[in-house]
Simulated scan of single mutants.
Amino acid sequence: MKTAVTFPSAGLRLAGHLYTPDDRIGGRRPAIVVSHPMSGVKEQTAGLYAERLARAGFITLAFDAAYQGESEGEPHLLEDPSHRVEDIKSAVTFLILRDEVDAERIGALGICASGGYVIPAVATDHRIKTVATVSAVDTGSMFREGVGRTQAPEVLQAMLDAAGEARVEEARGEPARLQQIHPDTGEQAMSLGQHTYDGWEYYRTPRGSHPRSANHFVFRSIDLIAQFSAFERIELVSPRPLLMIAGTAAATAYLSREAIEKAAEPKELFWIDGATHVDLYDREEYLPTVIAKLDDFFTAGLGAASSAVPLHGLR
């Protein structure tokens, strides 16, 4: 069952979808926070993963990050890594306050950019007992260095100059300057490479598009993103279990490989053979394997989803 919910995060109200299993087992269950990619909303891949994991027996929460989708925050479409990390922690608080959730069995799942945001959230929030990522991305690295670290240094310097100008424009009362994310056409996207085309094909076609996935971000987000480093303290996740899932054909696969090397045990990097970064968002060729792996991982870390803890005697 899917229920629309709201909860606070650093002074803003976030909109989410709470997924609960359809069986009628009573008591408190393990729960998983599911966080979406940078340009996504809860109705896209995060909601798909949340729904599939709820079928496996977990309570799951997919939500729109601050400034995104149906959540509060102005200027809308600002991408603030620090707030994204706080949103994940606030989602955990929301779940802990739910009668149907076992507060001692909460995990987190981050997809794409949230695969980067979820790591610092878990590193310092011991309420989260286990964490997984799918197609993880460090947005800071991507903006500083480009995909594959092929971006010339002067590109970032020019963007930071423009971000400063954009801040002044907003202070003068002008609308927030926006930056388009995906090209207008498939031909334009393909001319920029397969990775760009894959993102366009998911977000800008009926495959994955959603009216609130706006294809823009506030330009001055760049000076917030550029100072962010997703995996700098990844070793603090230990001794809690870490699973990172990536496609062998993903342009971003090196980020998961490097992150898992820095992490402490217990940890696992699980490869999906032949999959690209965006394939893992929704492709039925790969999704059952990913969900089965996540089910096994969260069951091992949080306990069987079907074994609810009785309500009496807790809290």
Score class of each variant (00 low, 15 high):
G193Q: 04
A65I: 00
G11D: 11
F7C: 00
S256T: 09
P8Q: 04
S229D: 07
D125E: 03
R98Q: 05
R105W: 14
A230S: 08
L294P: 15
D87K: 06
P153S: 02
L255N: 13
H216K: 12
D161Y: 04
D23H: 12
D125H: 02
G26T: 15
P81C: 05
Q179M: 14
K129G: 06
P153H: 01
Y67I: 01
Q151A: 15
V85K: 05
H126N: 13
L280G: 10
E284I: 15
A113P: 10
D161P: 03
L224Y: 05
I25E: 11
V147W: 03
T248G: 09
D102L: 12
V155M: 14
L14D: 00
R144F: 12
R98H: 06
L160M: 12
A103H: 03
Y281E: 03
P8F: 01
A103L: 03
D198A: 00
H277K: 07
G193A: 11
E284S: 12
A56R: 14
F297N: 02
A46S: 10
R28H: 08
I128W: 03
A246W: 11
I96H: 04
R84S: 09
A108I: 01
D138H: 06
G303N: 13
R257P: 08
W271A: 11
S71M: 02
A31P: 10
R212S: 01
D125Y: 08
A163F: 11
E100W: 12
A263K: 08
S90H: 00
A108V: 01
L77S: 13
G73Q: 02
V290M: 15
A189L: 06
R257A: 14
D282T: 11
P266M: 02
Y203N: 00
K267G: 05
G148K: 07
F297T: 06
P120C: 11
Y281M: 07
I225V: 08
D296H: 04
Y202C: 01
E72S: 02
R55W: 13
I291S: 03
A4H: 09
A246N: 07
V237C: 09
T133G: 13
Y281D: 02
P310A: 15
R144Q: 14
E104W: 12
M38Q: 09
Q44I: 04
P211G: 07
P120D: 13
A163L: 12
F7W: 04
E86L: 14
L311P: 01
P183M: 04
L302H: 04
D279K: 05
G274K: 01
H126V: 15
A162E: 13
H126Q: 13
E268K: 09
L160C: 13
A176T: 11
A123W: 10
V85Y: 01
A189Y: 00
G73T: 04
H210M: 03
V131D: 05
